[in-house]
Simulated scan of single mutants.
Amino acid sequence: MTVRLNKFLSANCGVSRREADRLIESGLVRINGEKVTELGVQVSETDNIELDGDPVTLSELEYYRFFKPRGMLTAYGDGRGKETLEEIPYLREKKLAYSGRLDYDSEGLIIFTNDGDLILRLQKSEFKAEKEYLVWVNGDLCEDDLEQIRSGLSTDEMRYLPCGAERIKAGHFRLILTEGKKRQIREIFRFFGLRVSRLLRVRIGNINIDGLRAGELKRLSAKEITELKKCTG
């Protein structure tokens, strides 16, 4: 059985197929000792693939959901006194890629996988993978404010895509986004003069944090993986 080289690299190097194409075109990939720059090449399990001089071995695709606690950096390596993903032994060992970076003071769901294609689809707004958040703020919004958010808010610095916005009760809201700009939710509420006191992501696509404890990593089932891929087109 053969597969396209970019698909092989995506599955075994944790990059998207688009990124794999760039690696191929830049001359960093060799098949059985021969440099390859042509896209569309097929490879099999018996071929020896190298990326930048290092062998690429077949690896099983892995998919996990993780409840990032508040007060943890979404990063590997030295956190300079702050907790990082290195606190989770399996993540420290595997260094899996992730989709759904959360800032230090935010908490909730992150997807971890070595499936580069899925990472790309979860991160790009054109694939419309929903990300649902519960937000607590130090004030309230009226229906007109919420309609601005639903229609696509524009600030002096940024233009945000339309998104779902619901008032649960005073100071407590639900937002559903299909993009992930830096500190987006905090900036949206700051536009209305409000400060976010708690930000919790509860869902990405069909995957939620139900039953997960803060700091817990859990493998996705085959059914969950299939449905998640459907959510990203």
Rank of each mutant, 00 (worst) to 15 (best):
K181F: 03
A222R: 13
L194M: 12
N12V: 03
R198V: 10
L141D: 05
I119S: 02
K94F: 04
V196C: 15
Y133H: 04
E50I: 06
R70A: 07
N208T: 15
E107G: 01
E87S: 11
R101L: 15
G171E: 00
R198F: 04
D103T: 15
L120F: 09
E25S: 13
I207V: 11
V135P: 12
V137W: 08
V202P: 15
V137N: 03
L200E: 00
E60G: 13
F192K: 09
S99N: 12
K229I: 05
E147D: 01
L5N: 00
E83T: 11
D21G: 01
Q148H: 12
Q148L: 14
I111T: 11
E19D: 14
A11M: 13
K95Y: 11
I49K: 12
A129K: 05
Y76W: 08
L58C: 13
T155D: 14
L39R: 02
F66I: 02
I149E: 11
S154R: 10
V135I: 13
N138M: 12
N12I: 01
E19R: 09
L118G: 05
L61G: 01
E87R: 07
R203M: 01
L122E: 06
Q123G: 07
L23D: 05
F67S: 03
G53F: 02
F66A: 04
L175D: 07
I110W: 06
A222Q: 12
A222M: 14
I185H: 08
A11N: 15
G40S: 06
G171S: 00
L120D: 08
P89Q: 00
E86M: 03
K169H: 05
N6R: 05
G180Y: 01
V196W: 02
E187K: 15
N32D: 13
Y63D: 07
K68W: 05
V29E: 10
K124P: 01
F8P: 06
S151T: 08
K35V: 09
I111V: 03
N12Y: 03
R65D: 10
K230I: 10
E126C: 04
K94T: 08
T155I: 12
I111S: 05
P89N: 07
H172M: 07
K230R: 08
T155G: 12
E60L: 13
T84F: 00
V3A: 01
F112D: 10
D140R: 15
N12M: 12
R203G: 07
D156L: 07
G77R: 14
V137R: 10
A11E: 13
K218T: 09
E224C: 04
D78C: 08
L228C: 06
D54G: 09
R186K: 06
I24M: 02
E62K: 08
L161Y: 15
G77N: 08
R174T: 10
L23N: 15
L9D: 07
R17H: 09
T2P: 11
L161E: 14
I225V: 12
S99E: 04
G81A: 11
E224L: 10
I209H: 10
S10W: 09
T84R: 00
